[in-house]
Write a protein that binds this DNA or RNA. Structure first.
Length: 415
RNA sequence: GCCGGGGUAGGGUAGCCUGGUUAUCCUCGGGGACUGUGGAUCCCCAGACUCGGGUUCAAAUCCCGGUCCCGGCCCCA
């Protein structure tokens, strides 16, 4: 037997119905916010992902040389592709561009709960508007999506990476050294961050003030305490969020995020029920386009970990009922088999979901099968009824039966 | 990459510690009892010891390694 590769999954019909259901909710919410769907290649030139993210990222990318000697990588995320697409063919599109995508990504990592090597991300990007309105819109969409999915327990945290970046720059830490320090700070590894800061000549009081910043976390009352340009920006952002009706937002200046292309506002959504892998959504603002050779364009985006958020919904035990068949058509015997196909075909053309016996089953077994498919009605095709131009339909829940002329069958079944 | 726990028909399990008949039970699937009526019952059929090596007269059972799954660490764009 051939096994599935590690970290991948097969989705059976029941689960696929559930996934499509939630996927549609996300699409609908994105569209309702004026975003339009795009799709980019699942593989790209490896360079696209290494340009800004750095070499340690490469180890977790599925990359290979194709038959033409090109360095190709399965996408580990979609933001880079969307920005590439923007630079390649959308630079003169009216701004802001509001785009969303849904698709799988690949990372060579150790699989664990809520973490796979092939996983699905739903994300959105707003390109071209350098202001707090844009960040507010992105956060509003993320919040609306989580709400629409019905997740009950989640935390939305907003921070501003410009504050720590600015502080480090003021203390004389070179920009290219900031990334490593920020990573340590994100995880609150102060013991590891301190020596790095000292090595760049930062004094103890400077270190203290940086650490203090990472611990600024709480409610909106903190807004007044955050100074400088980022402080004004955050105040503006929160006013817009308030106007959007999003008030349950925490402030956490220690939120750094792993990628160093983020420059301004950063935000995350966590589902506490997920334990170690609880982050279900992450994003922020960045200026990625010039890294790929375009003009500097301000963008804000986020990605939802689709598998993870579905796992969270599962933990919260959200009920989901798949769609049922409208009817199951079964012949009473061999002599009406062909007629039952004619009837099924006709009902299908009329837009109903219809299944029909393919197993040459005896009627009682076929009825059992009809029950197993969950069809609302069984359409019993017998020669006696047919002689009157009719069939018997049976409501599978109540067991009630009635003789229905073929002409009115579709109507009777959709009632 | 590291640490720990696992893997017995499609799904769920007993057996494993203490090696020894045809590997347990439930469910699902196929057929029949039931020649025009389902989710009940009964009967029949089909279906498994994760893979490789070792120990042994004998391995599902003990030992080693691989693999996959689960939990955690590292990482997490």
């Amino acid at each position: 037997m051939i096994q599935r590769p590690r970290g991948t999954r097969d989705f059976l019909p029941e689960e696929m119905e559930r996934r499509r259901h939630y996927e549609q909710i996300l699409r609908q919410v994105a569209c309702s916010h004026g975003f339009r769907e795009v799709s980019t290649p699942i593989f790209e030139n490896t360079e696209l992902f290494t340009a800004k993210s750095g070499p340690n990222i490469v180890e977790e990318i599925y990359s290979f040389e194709d038959k033409g000697g090109r360095e190709i990588a399965l996408r580990p995320e979609v933001t880079a592709s969307v920005i590439r697409m923007f630079i390649n063919e959308m630079t003169s599109a009216p701004r802001p561009l509001k785009l969303f995508y849904f698709g799988q990504c690949f990372r060579y990592e150790r699989p664990q709960s809520g973490r796979y090597r092939e996983f699905y991300q739903f994300g959105a990007e707003i390109i071209g508007a350098p202001n707090a309105e844009t960040d507010a819109e992105a956060i509003a969409l993320a919040a609306a999506m989580v709400e629409a999915l019905g997740l009950r327990e989640y935390d939305l945290k907003v921070g501003h990476i410009g504050i720590l970046r600015g502080q480090l720059a003021e203390l004389g830490v070179p920009a290219d050294a900031a990334g490593e320090i920020l990573q340590k700070l994100d995880k609150k590894l102060y013991d590891e961050a301190a020596p790095l800061l000292r090595s760049h000549g930062v004094q103890e009081d400077g270190i203290e003030s940086v650490f203090a910043t990472t611990q600024v976390a709480g409610g909106k009352e903190l807004l007044s305490e955050i100074g400088g340009e980022p402080g004004r920006y955050l105040n503006e952002l929160f006013r817009f969020l308030d106007a959007y009706g999003i008030d349950d937002v925490a402030i956490d200046l220690g939120t750094v995020r792993g990628l160093d292309y983020y420059t301004g506002v950063v935000f995350e959504v966590e589902a506490p029920c997920l334990g170690a892998e609880k982050q279900v959504c992450g994003g922020g603002s960045y200026t990625l386009s010039e890294v790929f050779g375009g003009e500097p364009v301000f963008s804000t985006g986020f990605a939802i970990g689709f598998d993870r958020i579905l796992l969270a919904l599962e933990r919260e035990e959200h009920a989901f009922d798949g769609k049922k068949l409208d009817a199951y058509v079964l012949p009473t015997g061999e002599e009406t088999r062909e007629e039952s196909f004619r009837i099924a075909a006709r009902l299908r053309r009329e837009g109903l979901s219809v299944d029909v016996d393919l197993m040459r089953r005896k009627m009682s077994k076929a009825m059992k099968q009809a029950a197993a498919t969950g069809a609302r009605f069984a359409v019993i095709v017998g020669s006696k009824d047919l002689a009157e131009g009719a069939v018997t339909i049976r409501d599978m829940d109540s067991g009630e039966q009635s003789l229905v002329p073929l002409e009115g069958l579709a109507k009777a079944l959709s009632a």
